[in-house]
Simulated scan of single mutants.
Amino acid sequence: MPTVETVVTETINISSLYPSHMNEDIVMGFSQLGSESDWRLANTASIVESAKEAGITLLLENAEQSQQAQFSAIRSFIEKQVDVIAIAPVVQTGWENILQEIKEAGIPVVIIDRSVNVEDTSLYVTFIGSDFYEEGIKAGKYALDKMRNKPGGIRIAELEGTVGSTPSIDRGRGFRDVIQERDDMEIIMSQPADFTIEGGKKVMEQFLQEAGEQPPQLLFAHNDDMAIGAIQAIEEFGLEPGKDIIIISVDGTRQAFEMMIEGKINAVIECNPLQGSLLMQAAREIMGGRTLPKRIIPPEDIFTQEYAHLEIDHRKY
């Protein structure tokens, strides 16, 4: 069983809500939000592989960034009377009605990766996912440390993720809360790039064209894929990523570690996609009528270019 950090703000007595059938086969319906990045592909693979290892039948539907597609998939899971529904939500709002439908059907829900913003938290059993705000905090602290000896007027560019998504909102908020300690650090440009390489390159090209002779000195990308796209744009613009523009990213993919070893990315804040075993364990606990914490956080770290070569062989994605 993987080591996890749990934050117990509330616990749910499963046995009072859902029937226990620990020894029966479990069928899980999983609504994945998309396949927009290497991180997402690793997340899906982890869940598929863990379901096989746990002997849980997995019905997987990929919404490809559409909340309406997620609603349709969830309603199909209800019709099939699955035992557990797991949801990785595209955005954090707009979930009350569909979650109420699931509750009325008597099916427990696990939210994974991204959170949902609902007043009634009894609509789901637990949330398994990273602390995105803390990831932003880590990125901000690295930025302060890296730029501590730079003269004033630090220009920062930010590549945001999907509009309205929990990681984009919380990473940006955590980063800003830290860098405000220094009055001369300013985010001069910030725009969504949809967590994709293509989006990162396109938006970074726009940033560089708009900045002209005063390009940003630091880039905070909300995921590795956008950072990799931005690196392509920076090099085509005639600048050196990692030196002319300090780059901080989030995820921890093997490709990002390769970029750190090459000196093109300065730091990566880890966001662990290998959440499958935690999800299957939660499903077993729910079906066994056991109590779960309301929040489960996988262990994560921050890696810098100086030590990337020591870690790259441990990357599983």
Rank of each mutant, 00 (worst) to 15 (best):
K243L: 10
M259H: 08
M226G: 10
M259K: 12
I269C: 06
P273D: 11
V268Y: 03
E262S: 13
I269D: 03
M259Y: 10
Q255P: 00
A221H: 12
G242D: 01
E240K: 12
L208D: 06
I269T: 09
A267C: 13
E240Q: 14
D225C: 12
K243T: 12
L218E: 07
P215K: 02
I245G: 04
V268R: 01
A230D: 06
M259Q: 14
Q217A: 14
I234V: 15
M204T: 14
A233N: 05
E258H: 01
E205Q: 15
S249M: 02
A211Y: 03
G263T: 06
V250N: 05
I234K: 03
G276T: 08
C271W: 02
Q209K: 12
F237M: 03
V268N: 04
I248S: 07
E270S: 13
Q214G: 00
A230K: 02
R254E: 11
D225Y: 10
K264N: 00
C271R: 06
G212A: 12
V203E: 11
P216G: 09
E236N: 15
I265T: 01
I246E: 05
T253H: 01
I231Q: 07
A267R: 00
F257S: 02
A227P: 06
Q255D: 15
V268H: 01
I228G: 05
D251R: 04
M280K: 09
M260P: 02
A221S: 15
Q206C: 04
A230S: 08
I269H: 07
L274S: 06
I269Q: 01
D244T: 04
D244H: 06
I261V: 15
G229T: 10
G276I: 11
S277M: 11
T253E: 03
L274K: 13
I228T: 08
I231K: 04
A256K: 02
E213H: 08
E235S: 11
E235C: 04
H222Q: 15
E235T: 11
A256Y: 01
D251W: 06
P215N: 02
H222W: 08
F257G: 03
D244G: 09
P215R: 07
F207G: 01
Q214I: 01
G238F: 05
E270H: 11
P216R: 05
A227I: 10
V203R: 05
E213Y: 05
L239K: 13
I246P: 00
A211V: 07
K264W: 00
